[in-house]
Simulated scan of single mutants.
Amino acid sequence: MLVLNAIIVDDEEFARSSLYFLLQENCENIQISGIAKSVTEARKLLAENKIDLIFLDIAMPGENGFELIPAAVQNNAHVVFTTAYDQYALKAIKANALDYLLKPIDIDELKETVIKATKYIGQNKLSAQQMNSQLTQLAENLADRSEIRKLNLPNGQGGYTLVNFNQIIHVEADSNYSVFHLSGMEKITVAKVLKEYEEILPENKFVRVHKSSIINLDYLKEYNSKNGLEVVLKSGVKIAVSRRRASEFAEKVKTYTNFRSDE
């Protein structure tokens, strides 16, 4: 198995020591090359060592974790964010298909993240250019903080496709996969459940109408109850609306329509 040189960056002593212990006990291919309690210390470790993987806390005094990103990109180091809060930051990380671990860190999630990182690094699927694009987009989202507008979707070819939210017509569940139907593009299938994207997509435009469907209200043409409640999209696709989601859907359409009329 490929051995990865890693560093842990966190200002809290307990968080540093507990993650170190979890990695030592459960991830035999991770070699801890250093532990830093600040971004300044982490930059020094990156300058002095060949680092493959960074476990990076977000909220730290002085410089926060995002300010280490330029050095991570320069050293082609894969980043796994660790965080206990700041829902906007977490949403932005998810939208850019970057790895993250919620504190307190779950052992199984840690193992899964390490396996994923090992695969990417070992096969050189995540190039420095791709990583830079993802992290740059993340920085833009975090700088704005009004609304996340773009989504990085793994394209099944070792890379990512950057998609504007307004390109997404609807998303459908296919077992443990999510299929994105896009305007002017081929559909993209992603190995993540629909629930993950329900949490990322803006609530003012996207609504889950069924356990297997999320639609973009920008592409809604009509809805009716001829054959049970269903929506018809501008693309001509018809999608059923489940009974338990009907009232929420109607309210979302009302709010969306009022918002559009005020523009």
Rank of each mutant, 00 (worst) to 15 (best):
K111P: 00
I93G: 11
N132C: 04
I93F: 12
N96A: 14
M131Q: 08
S127D: 01
L126N: 02
Q130M: 06
L126D: 05
V114P: 00
K119V: 15
I121E: 04
I121V: 05
L90Y: 11
D86G: 08
Y120N: 10
K125R: 10
D99V: 08
A97S: 13
K103W: 09
L110D: 09
L110N: 01
D108R: 09
N96L: 14
N124W: 06
Q137I: 08
A89Q: 11
Y88D: 05
Q129I: 03
L110P: 00
N124F: 02
S127R: 02
Q129H: 05
Q134E: 04
I105R: 03
E109L: 15
T118K: 00
I107G: 00
S133K: 04
A95I: 14
D99G: 07
Q123S: 12
L110G: 06
P104R: 04
Q134G: 08
L126I: 06
Y100Q: 07
I107W: 01
Q137A: 14
K119L: 15
Q87D: 12
E112G: 13
M131A: 02
G122W: 04
T136Y: 01
T136P: 00
L90G: 09
K91R: 11
A92I: 11
N96G: 04
L135M: 09
I93A: 14
L135Q: 03
D99E: 14
I121A: 03
Y100T: 10
T136V: 05
N132T: 03
Y120K: 08
I115L: 08
D108P: 00
A95G: 06
Y100K: 05
A128K: 15
Q87C: 06
V114W: 01
E112V: 15
Y120H: 10
D99A: 13
Y120C: 07
T113Q: 06
T113C: 14
L126S: 03
I93Q: 13
V114S: 01
Q87E: 12
L126C: 05
P104S: 03
A128C: 12
N96S: 14
E109G: 14
A128W: 10
A92C: 10
L101T: 11
G122Y: 06
N124L: 06
T118A: 08
T136I: 03
A97P: 00
Q134M: 08
K125M: 12
G122N: 02
T113E: 07
E109T: 15
D106V: 12
N132R: 10
